[in-house]
């Protein structure tokens, strides 16, 4: 069963959300950031529904963004931000940070349910791809720029990922990628890849 953590400081709202979701999902609850961090450790959920305005600073997105960054750094769950913060800055920071969806309160419940379904579908697809040995590759190229750039970005991301995993070991990386070492050197030069300073 897909598990969801509800991080929301409003008890009444959180309980209503619980009631809506508890039949189809396993629900965990937290009302502030320390509780959320603790509960995440215990539950390792698939999806997090996160309010950005959490105590002690309910009127700023700081606490919520802190929890979001914690989730992104430590968990693979999909984050759906459900917030009353109407600042553009909060939305930009959330989306830049990598939240799955950003919904502003009051949202139609069907929209939230649809977002949860989408997150679930993404998770399932990712897990299926993972089981087939395909790792997620981030593409950060606008489609309008053409397929050449998309292909190059995918190549670059894949090579960076493998090089990082092998600690910049070209021999191991070439083996994992199924290419010759010379070809890998060519790509390293082409994409101007350098080992991180702390490596």
């Amino acid at each position: 069963m897909t598990s969801i953590i509800l991080i929301e400081d409003d008890d009444a709202l959180r309980k209503q959300l619980c009631f809506t979701l508890e039949n189809d999902y396993k629900i965990f609850e937290a009302s502030n950031s320390p509780d959320a961090i603790e509960m995440l450790k215990e539950s390792d959920p698939d999806i997090a529904i996160l309010d950005l305005g959490l105590p002690p600073n309910e009127n700023t997105p700081d606490e919520g963004l802190f929890v979001m960054n914690h989730i992104l750094a430590n968990y693979t769950c999909k984050i759906i931000v459900l917030t009353g913060q109407n600042t553009k800055e909060a939305a930009v920071k959330s989306l830049e940070g990598g939240c799955f969806d950003y919904l502003e309160k009051p949202v139609n419940i069907n929209q939230l349910l649809f977002s949860i379904e989408r997150a679930k579908l993404f998770l399932e697809t990712e897990q299926e791809l993972k089981s087939r040995g395909v790792e997620k590759i981030e593409l950060q190229v606008q489609i309008g720029k053409g397929l050449q750039e998309v292909r190059e970005s995918a190549e670059k991301n894949l090579i960076i990922k493998i090089l990082n995993e092998t600690g910049f070991n070209v021999y191991k990386s070439a083996k994992m990628l199924g290419v010759k070492r010379e070809s890998l050197y060519y790509f390293i030069k082409k994409f101007n890849l350098v080992r991180d300073k702390d490596d």
Partner: peptide
């Protein structure tokens, strides 16, 4: 400040009513 403060609580109340209606 008042706007931000009130909108936080009022939006939560509106969201609560919305979900309660669904439930």
């Amino acid at each position: 400040k008042i706007n931000t403060f009130l909108s936080h609580d009022i939006k939560n109340l509106a969201q609560f009513i919305n979900i309660m209606e669904h439930n």
